[in-house]
Simulated assay, not measured.
Amino acid sequence: MCNRLFSGLLFLCLSFHVLAQTEVRVGVLKFGTVNWEIDVIKHHKLDEKYQFKLKVTSLASKNASAVALQSDAVDIILSDWFWVNRQRFEHKDYTLFPTSRATGGLYIAPSSGMVSLNDLTGKTVGIAGGAVDKNWLLLQAYSQSKYQLDLKAAVDPVFAAPPLLNRLMMRGDLASTINFWHYGARLKAAGYKPLVTVPEMLAELGVDAQIPLLGWVFSQRWANENPRVIEGFLQASLEAKRILFSSDLEWQRISALVKAENPAVFAALKADYRAGLLGQFGEKELAGSKHVFTILAKQGGSTLVGKATTLSEGTFWKTNLLADSFNAKVAQ
């Protein structure tokens, strides 16, 4: 009996050791804001706490991230659910755990005098992310619904890299711009304001829920084969976000990574990062995402959604981890 007990204990110890040493290979953009979270995980040894070994691969672009995942060079990347849904209609089993929500808006100069989208007619609008940028498509749907305005025909769209768009905006070469969230935060810090926000667009289009934007993407088969590992990684990710959500001291610690140009930009980045965290994802949010898919599929067509005709049942990873995670008020 003692021998059987000893063997059982030895097996448990060995199993724990193997789990603790299980490597999770995560691919992230080299200069992406996700590196703030990765740094928090490493600094606080959250991978050790949740019994996996984090290995980070820096990648040059969104396309490089997709290639790395598809070639099995990494286990997890950060991407958007439209890409995941598109892959599932190509018979790939990728799935997504949502982490951030759709935010941002269309920014204008405070002295522009514009009060509605009608005022943009004939003017130049800068857009990051290309012709099928989701906020740009959402803005088109919003303008049609609220003003019966064909915004795409009414304005002169300019597609450019996010830093260039901000420079053009601040130089007065653009009437307005839609940019990625951290560039929008920089515009706000410089006194620019949103003519319309993404939540306002969604409300006009009948969406009353937090809609996810990005999330951790991985193979459903891999996750099913490694349930404790993926749960451990997601727990570590959520804990890192909670630290950034609640601790101003942690932001001071990672300030070199944030690379804010001045204190106003730093404050705006911190506030907008916190505001962009997805607090919950349940049936209401899933229904809202299906509605958004229908809206944007109509605007962007196959260029955006590929062969997909609806939101796949497995696009979002089923988990109970994300439940009111970031809804508490944070003292600034």
Rank of each mutant, 00 (worst) to 15 (best):
G113P: 00
G301S: 11
A209Y: 02
F82P: 03
Y142N: 05
F245T: 04
F180M: 06
P194L: 06
L304R: 07
H182C: 00
I254E: 02
S61R: 10
Q280H: 15
H44P: 12
G32A: 14
D248Y: 02
L69S: 07
P212E: 10
G276V: 02
K270M: 09
L213F: 14
E90N: 15
V198Y: 10
L151Q: 04
W83F: 15
G288W: 00
A175H: 12
R253S: 07
L296M: 08
T315L: 08
S15M: 09
H43R: 14
I295R: 05
A323P: 00
K298M: 08
K318Q: 15
L69A: 09
V265P: 03
V34R: 04
V115A: 10
R167E: 14
M201R: 00
Y192V: 09
Q21R: 12
S100L: 05
V158S: 10
K134T: 15
E313T: 12
S145R: 13
W36Q: 10
S312T: 07
S15N: 05
W251S: 01
S111H: 12
V198Q: 02
A203E: 11
L296T: 04
L311N: 05
N262T: 12
K188V: 06
D272H: 11
R274S: 04
C2F: 08
A160Q: 13
V26A: 10
E225F: 06
P163A: 01
P98K: 06
M201I: 11
Q148D: 13
H291Y: 00
D75R: 01
K55S: 14
V34S: 13
G288P: 13
F180N: 09
F6L: 15
Q51S: 14
M201D: 02
G314R: 08
A73M: 09
I127P: 01
L321N: 06
A154L: 10
F326G: 06
V132A: 08
L165I: 09
S145C: 08
D150F: 04
L117S: 02
A323S: 11
Y142S: 10
L54K: 01
K188C: 02
I108R: 07
F218A: 04
P263N: 03
W181V: 11
A73L: 12
D272I: 03
L164I: 09
A73C: 03
Y183E: 12
L168E: 09
K241A: 14
E48M: 03
F6H: 06
K329N: 11
S237I: 01
W136E: 05
L304P: 01
L164W: 10
L205S: 08
W181R: 10
G276H: 01
P263D: 04
S7P: 00
W83H: 11
V18C: 13
M170G: 07
V125G: 04
Q252I: 00
G122I: 03
L165H: 07
L277V: 02
A20C: 11
F266P: 11
L322Q: 09
F16I: 11
D75I: 02
Y50V: 12
V74C: 05
G306K: 04
S325E: 12
S246C: 06
L195R: 09
D39L: 04
T315Q: 07
N63C: 00
E48Y: 01
G215M: 08
G27M: 05
L139V: 04
V125C: 09
D248M: 10
H17D: 09
G8V: 05
A271H: 06
F31P: 03
V115I: 12
F52L: 14
I243H: 01
